[in-house]
Amino acid sequence: MADPLYRAAPPAALRVEPLGELTLIFDRRSMQTHVVAPPIPQILDAMGDDICSAAAIAERLSVAFDIGRAGDAASIIAERLDELAALGLVAAA
């Protein structure tokens, strides 16, 4: 089965405020506040406006961060994407 693909929420929908080690995300569509820790903000940044799979995000993150073996990272990112989809911060594409 092909990797699920996701698209991040449009930038205008979110207000992102880094706060120490955590990041606050206010979703203007749901009026909900999310308090997230790494690697969530990095995943959203890496996605940009593109339709991405977990493997593609792992590939992009590996350029900027030392994230170990790409295969392990991709499975962790896939779990996070699933959670982000439940929160409405990414959507299946």
Binding site: R15, E17, L19, L24, F26, R28, M31, T33
Partner: peptide, 17 residues
């Protein structure tokens, strides 16, 4: 906080920062 929406979010984020 919830009733104020984004204004509450921005106000509180600024306060704690």
């Amino acid at each position: 906080y919830v009733a104020l929406g984004e204004a509450g979010f921005a106000t509180l984020a600024r306060l704690v920062r």
